[in-house]
């Protein structure tokens, strides 16, 4: 919102109370998107417990973030846990089924670079090898507060998205 004008007071008439603002459609859409983040969890291990723990905090709803049951209705995919060779095609197809625009949060050390399973034969060394990742939330596992901080960082990223 680039300009807001509001000069209303209780004494003035209804016509004079009418306020307006000027913006672009892109900024309005980004404002709407960052205010209602629908999350689809892709939890493969213990980080998923911390992610659902964050759901119990009221801060997540204040930020407009809601957990959805199906990824086809979600904007944000949260990958919580290690991705191995058998899960990687599933993760890719889940990502491709999500509607545009979409963002991805990698939660926990396993999702970021494999964590303690980094040199293992079966674990993909970071889910950014499979899908593009926007926000990394570090920790093993991250606290629920860290996950909420990740949502705040994602909101900032959605707001200042650059267009051609």
């Amino acid at each position: 919102m680039s300009e807001v004008s509001d000069s209303s007071s209780p004494e003035q008439s209804r016509e004079q109370k009418t306020s307006f603002f000027v913006t672009t459609m892109e900024k309005l859409a980004d404002w709407a998107r960052c205010s209602s983040i629908w999350i689809s969890p892709f939890a493969t291990s213990c980080c998923g417990v911390e992610m659902k723990q964050a759901d119990l905090y009221s801060e997540l709803e204040h930020l407009g973030a809601v957990f959805k049951k199906h990824h086809s209705k979600a904007d944000v995919l949260v990958i919580a846990g290690a991705i191995n060779g058998k899960t990687a095609p599933v993760l890719r197809s889940v990502y491709e089924q999500m509607p545009e625009p979409k963002w991805v949060i990698a939660m926990g050390a396993c999702a970021i670079n494999g964590g303690v399973y980094n040199q293992s034969y079966s674990v993909v060394e970071g889910c950014d090898k499979v899908v593009p990742v926007d926000v990394y939330v570090e920790g093993c596992p991250p606290k629920p507060e860290a996950f909420i901080q990740g949502i705040i960082k994602l909101k900032e990223k959605i707001k200042r998205i650059e267009r051609q």
Partner: peptide, 20 residues
Amino acid sequence: FNDYPLRKDYPLNGSVKWSY
């Protein structure tokens, strides 16, 4: 996956890495 990972002569970090 065509190897047997718990054999002693299988490499610790595996023989393939997945990427998109």
